[in-house]
Design a protein around this nucleic acid. Structure first.
Lengths: 205, 205
DNA sequence: TAGATTGTTAATCGATTAACAATC
DNA sequence: TAGATTGTTAATCGATTAACAATC
């Protein structure tokens, strides 16, 4: 349950703190400080302390933060101290790649269903998942109580699919389609567009 | 050549404006307005006008913006009115997927070289590209004058590889490794981390 | 105790937005 | 001309940072 009114930009940094803590733990450390975290992340220590202060007091003056403890706290705040089942819509070029990607599973996001609307693809398999027709989405999403979608359909159909997903109770969309989606505020969308990212960098070249 | 001191966040929005213009053009439109763009992008029209004003005056009072003209201007500003050759380091699970992705090519970013350090992979092919040993990077990068890298190595080696790339003259890194890179300011890094993205969304679920 | 580092306040910095004169 | 929309200014809003008392 979101504590105060935490800015989205702060929430977006918490996963970075979390992964940095895991990294430090792997190095055998048990305690860290806002300064050490800041160095690793290219931020200021004040920002890290301020961000954490939205959620509670997790450190000790003079010594810093117990890594394992802070890690668990962040997992709790982010709701990632559990497994989330996710599904993918659009098994094209990109979708197929995403279905093969092991990083989701390795971090508690398990891909449990694939959908596409191309008759040729329906019934096909990617890994051990079968591609279902998009017409099966209402049933499967309800049965598996899915709330997180990965969207990898063409830009032209993304808005229509997103609307359908919202109607089916989806609350978070990781959107790989290069288009801004219009959805109700309760639905969160995160955009991943590597081409836009490259175009933003060539400006400086 | 960057005009004034344009905030990075503004530069980051230009690709979104560009792709929206392409979208509108595909719909047969020839003219648009800051208001129409704003609606499509979920921004305010004032922001769009302000952003564009960093670079010049591209519209006409009363009528708005000629789509094709503004598109060309933005391409010029972003330096994407040409083809860029890019290369990929790290041909694992994820790298392989990226190598197959056609979206780069389709938008003027041509993948021209693949590198990995696993002996088993060297000499192997992905599509019509051969995987080279990372030891060949200095030669290939110099020969092909490459300045844009896509980094898809494990988090543990990302920093070391990034430093090597910087030494070889790379100026832009699209980083898929879940770690913050420390590089000189002249080198631009863009981070893509779908797991962090999902973790930022589950906060709200 | 002395040194270190937190959590928090207040100041600063930067980005967004409202408003409107200019003008097509 | 009347209506529409730009480019820009100034106000507002929000995020970052510096500073420091509290305290381990």
């Amino acid at each position: 349950m979101p504590q105060k009114n935490v800015p989205a930009i702060v929430v977006g940094r918490l996963p970075l703190y979390l992964r940095t803590l895991q990294f430090l733990k792997n190095e055998g450390k048990r305690v860290t400080s806002s300064q050490e975290l800041a160095e690793r992340l290219g931020l200021t220590s004040a920002q890290i302390r301020k961000d954490l202060s939205y959620f509670g007091e997790f450190g000790k003056q003079g010594t810093g933060y117990a890594i394992e403890f802070l890690e668990e706290q962040l997992r709790g705040i982010l709701n990632v101290n559990r497994q989330w089942n996710v599904f993918l819509v659009g098994v094209g070029d990109l979708g197929r790649a995403l279905a093969h990607y092991r990083g989701f599973q390795a971090n508690g996001f398990r891909l449990v269903a694939l959908f596409d609307n191309a008759p040729k693809k329906i019934g096909g398999k990617v890994g051990d998942l079968t591609i279902h027709d998009t017409s099966a989405m209402p049933r499967v999403i309800a049965e598996k109580k899915l709330r997180i979608a990965i969207l990898a359909v063409p830009a032209e159909s993304a808005q229509a699919v997103a609307e359908q997903l919202v109607g089916l109770g989806v609350r978070a969309i990781l959107n790989y389609a290069p288009v801004t989606l219009s959805v109700p505020p309760k639905v969160k969308v995160y955009y991943i567009d590597p081409v836009a990212a490259l175009q933003g960098m060539t400006y400086y070249l």
